[in-house]
Design a protein around this nucleic acid. Structure first.
Length: 686
DNA sequence: ATTAGGG
DNA sequence: CCCTAAT
């Protein structure tokens, strides 16, 4: 193709729905920041699972792309009808596509306004499992006053990266993020954010519904809830060693990433990269200001270990929001002119005061977006709830939303909407992927000393919480200069000062395109092993079916930027078109156990049945996967233990593998013989 | 859609 | 895990 005209879109910021996260008592230093950060990560991850995926995959391989695309989609909405849509008028929103996955770490689920009721169950379920309280709109931070500001960051970061965080975050996802695009030219229009239902907390007050909805259990502790594994009784017959009463563990994660159902809304195809993609270039800029402030509201959740009691009502709020349609708000657009400039990353100005609390639920926030008016404000707010007095003296903060830093993308006019979506997604993912960290602003000042406690900084003072704001800022630490990305994609130049981050993003890009949500999953997997099992099968089942919409993503481990950086430019082009390779998800011992059981009973060659019997709930395990796994198990069983890699499989299981394999191979042979014999007989006869 | 195998 | 051929 020849030159294509390119359209540049400047996004002032994406608003990310706040993700409520339950925080455990963190005693460490800096827990506050971290918590916030962690939460965000979760949200981001949703949006951009990609980043995480990238990280994980980058080692592995070149191909990628689809999955991520599937999971998260970006929808382009044109509000105004002008035929020539002006760029300015378009709005994009990020929405999750897949089902919910719950895994350890961070889970984000979307609450769709779309309203499939079925989702509710799922979400609730997920929440219960995760102990997350989530409101679509807000992020809640509960910290010990004694904690130091810095610790939070560390915690969050570490956790997310490692993927093991116990706490989980959920956020609304579907519509969660919406931003409107600003104009490209120097000025950038700000975008309103809205979150689907989330935002409008205003509505929150309705109690009745909410209360019903939420399960009490959720409320309780932060700690994770264990879900009973599902077991099926199998009747065995064939394989000698098999007992009928044997139970198989049923699977695990259904939600996972891989098999995603596509979002109802947008067809996958749309998201797929059109051929031209390569051409498009994206420039992302990070504006200094990141997040917008939003009024907070929500109740907080607390989950402190100690007290569970009061929480309930708050929760209800969350639920309500999900879909309550009441709010028309969902999509309003706001326009703001904000210029983004760069502040350096964080601008304090943005802080808005929140309506502080008030009574719990009622709140406010009608337009979360609202604040934005100011422009690129960095953060938003925190509301708080009473805090100090409680025994623990915890400060509860509800962060309504963060605004994503401005970014620019450039894409050919000939590009498809789907590619635009993907491009934006990638850009978002890139930003998110980079190591953002949370900056804390209080009373107009940026608090840089992470060692101070909230008490020392005054953050525990309820009356002044309004002055508390958080901002996402590029991590100074990582800023790889590389721009591995394909040339086409990034064009760094544009970026204003804020670039600091930029570097990272590029790194992401490569991966990003393909990268997708999966990564997170993977992470989990490791830890998850048990997780699989734990996944509530029964519940799941119902849930899954019912709620296609919601999906959760697991937090992605932070990626090492380095790694990203490493990723080469070259692949990108192809990958964008290629389908992303599924994330690698090693079989857990539990899964192996289930597989062995099923094969003992059903034999080899009936993978479909094996799948149904033992992995019906594990959507990411296809019969082909099971067949392949069996193949590898047989191989593993035959090699010396020293040569085995990965999570060790109990010898006992391997022995069973060999036994079953031998048995069924024999059976198969017999069958063949029999058939041949019969055939011959027939021939002879005739 | 499944199965079987090679890569 | 992916890809394919053959069912």
């Amino acid at each position: 193709m020849v030159l294509q005209k390119r359209l540049d879109y400047g996004f002032n910021g994406y608003q990310v729905p706040a993700m409520p996260r339950a925080c455990r008592s963190a005693r460490g230093r800096g827990s506050l920041k971290r918590k916030v950060e962690e939460t965000q990560m979760g949200a981001f991850e949703l949006l951009a699972t990609v980043a995480g995926k990238l990280l994980q995959e980058r080692e592995t391989s070149p191909a990628l792309s689809n999955e991520s695309a599937r999971r998260t989609q970006i929808t382009v909405v044109e509000d105004n009808v002008k035929q020539e849509q002006r760029d300015e008028e378009k709005s994009l929103k990020v929405e999750p596509c897949d089902q919910v996955s719950s895994h350890e770490s961070v889970v984000v689920s979307e609450f769709g306004l779309q309203g499939h009721d079925q989702n509710n169950n799922l979400q609730e379920f997920a929440r219960a499992q995760n102990n997350v309280v989530s409101g679509p709109a807000s992020l809640i931070v509960n910290c010990d006053l004694s904690e130091k500001v810095g610790s939070a960051e560390e915690t969050a970061t570490g956790k997310s990266r490692s993927g093991n965080t116990s706490s989980k975050v959920k956020g609304g996802s579907t519509d969660n993020v919406e931003y409107y695009k600003g104009k490209v030219e120097g000025g950038i229009e700000k975008v309103g954010n809205l979150i689907n239902g989330t935002v409008p907390d205003t509505c929150s007050s309705d109690d009745p519904l909410e209360s019903d909805t939420k399960p009490p259990a959720l409320v309780s502790s932060d700690s994770s809830i264990e879900v009973p594994l599902l077991r099926e009784h199998l009747t065995c017959g064939s394989f000698p060693g098999c007992r009928d009463d044997v139970k198989l563990v049923s699977r695990d994660d259904e939600e996972n990433s891989s098999g995603c159902t596509q979002p109802s809304t947008t067809p996958l195809k749309a998201s797929r990269p059109p051929p031209h993609i390569e051409d498009r270039k994206i420039r992302k800029l990070l504006a200094s200001k990141y997040w917008e402030v939003a009024p907070k509201l929500e109740g907080e959740l607390s989950n402190t270990d100690g007290d569970m009691k009061p929480v309930f009502r708050n929760r209800k709020i969350f639920y309500t929001r999900q879909r309550s349609l009441r709010n028309p708000c969902k999509r309003r657009k706001l326009e703001k002119s904000s210029v983004s400039t760069s502040d350096g990353g964080v601008s304090s100005e943005g802080i808005s005061s929140t309506p502080k609390k008030g009574t719990n639920g009622s709140t406010i926030g009608s337009g979360s977006t609202i604040h934005g008016g100011s422009g690129a404000s960095s953060s938003s707010v925190a509301g708080q709830e009473s805090s100090s007095q409680s025994k623990d003296s915890h400060v509860k903060l509800s962060i309504k939303s963060f605004r994503v830093p401005e970014l620019f993308i450039e894409i050919p006019e000939t590009a498809t909407v789907g590619s635009l979506k993907r491009t934006v997604m990638e850009a978002v993912a890139a930003i998110l992927g980079e190591g953002l960290h949370v900056g804390v602003l209080y009373q107009g000042k940026k608090i840089r000393d992470d060692s101070k406690t909230l008490l020392q900084t005054g953050i525990c003072d309820e009356d002044k919480l309004d002055g508390l704001g958080f901002a996402l800022e590029p991590s100074p630490t990582n800023a790889p200069s590389l721009c591995p990305k394909d040339p086409p994609f990034l064009v760094p130049c544009d970026t204003p000062q804020p670039l600091a981050r930029y570097p990272t993003s590029p790194a992401l890009d490569p991966g990003i395109s393909d990268a997708s949500p999966d990564p997170p999953m993977i992470n989990m997997a490791n830890s998850v092993e048990s997780d699989h099992d734990s996944v509530p099968s029964p519940t799941d089942m119902s849930i899954d079916k019912n709620t296609p919409d919601s999906r959760a993503l697991v937090a992605v481990p932070a990626m090492s930027v380095e790694a990203l950086a490493v990723v080469p430019l070259h692949r990108k082009s192809r990958r964008s078109e290629l389908v992303q390779r599924r994330i690698r998800r090693p079989f857990s011992v539990t899964e192996v156990e289930a597989l062995v059981q099923a094969v003992e009973k059903l034999g080899t060659g009936r993978w479909r049945d094996v799948k149904l019997r033992a992995f019906d709930n594990a959507k990411h395990r296809t019969y082909v996967d099971l067949k392949d796994k069996w193949k590898t198990l047989v191989h593993t069983a035959r090699i010396s233990p020293q040569q085995r890699r990965g999570e060790p499989v109990p010898q006992e299981l391997l022995d069973r593998v060999l036994a079953a394999h031998a048995y069924w191979s024999q059976q198969q042979a017999k069958q063949q013989v029999k058939q041949l014999t019969e055939t011959c007989l027939l021939l002879n006869t005739s």
